[in-house]
Design a protein around this nucleic acid. Sequence first.
DNA 1: TATGCGTGGAC
DNA 2: TGTCCAAGCAT
Length: 400
Amino acid sequence: MPRARGSKHPADGLPRRRVAAIQRRLLRWYAAHRRRLPWRRARPDPYRVWVAEIMLQQTQISTVIPYYERFVARFCNVAALAAADEEEVLALWSGLGYYSRARSLLRSARLLIERHDGRLPRQRDLLESLPGIGRYTAGAILSIAFSQPEPAVDGNVRRVLTRLMLTKQKPVQRSRCQRTAAGRPRRAGAPAPGAGRFSEPTAAELEVRARDLVSSVPPADFNQAIMELGALVCRPSAPLCATCPLSRVCEARRLGVQEQVPSPRKQPATVRQSRAVALIHNNGRVLVERAFSPGTPRGLWDLPGTLIPENSEPRRHLERHLRSQGLGTRVGARLACVEHGITFRRIRCTAYETVLDGSALSESPAAGRPARRWVERSHLRSLPMGSAARRLLASCRRPI
DNA sequence: TATGCGTGGAC
DNA sequence: TGTCCAAGCAT
């Protein structure tokens, strides 16, 4: 897109002086406040940047750090990852959630070996063609690992830019003369985004703004600076405007509406379900089965169990289920109750202890039954475990 | 454009 | 303990 002559950026109408002020203030703030993170290095390793960015999708930094450390210690480069078993990759991911990220990471590593000499490509279209890499992640890798002036708009950046460049909706009749935040006419009849009082930029508009801002500055520092500001200062609620380096140039702050934008997304209704699992053990070994009952992500091993219909008695229902699965036994004492979430469902999971004669059970699955295996308790950590098994075994003090 | 995909932290 | 919440990618 050719840049218009004059002092304005073409898409958003931001004066150049304001762009320069935002860049300068943000970079100065970042130099003083950046967090030391294991993937932030003076000379970034593209592989490590990639792994970190995938783990950070929808996941908080404090959660990611230990997983990241273990992962890059085990798989130090693309080739090591590409040669791995999916089960081992999932085991290292176990507990981090969104397991398709791990599967995509492995598939991408193998594609990089096949097609790109084991290196991450430096072109956006090639990066975005890899499983698990979308608009944001490609921009993050290009800017952080390869110092390219590419935008990387994540939730933090969206929030910072939306607040920074908010435009108030005019109360006059809206028609084709109504302008978006980017200065383009809004489609006639199209609903204005946001709460109604303010015009919030679309994803495409945000990317145009982010691209303007990241030009002519060090891209790795700038993109990380704006994300860091969103995480630490320009928080979703109770933003710390008093200490924000951009508060003087922030439109939402000027209007006093920083907590009202961006408008919150609709939260899907929570559906609650109950599940019961059996900790079946024998001579120090625990019986696990692979992702069969709802509540365990695909490919993970969890304790045998079943969903409990409403108004059913969990213990009775679990016993019936175990009998139907050839695990004919009575369940013993209730061990624990763990609650975990599958997306926006919450599943309350009650665990019961059961001792079973190992000789009574074949590990070869019958048709229509899940894969089962006996695992030494000390080896459970090397398995990708579902959350019921993981959390129960982590909290269970009694020796098995 | 809407929905499914996990989890842990804040309150 | 229960409830709410985050905000990328694939389909």
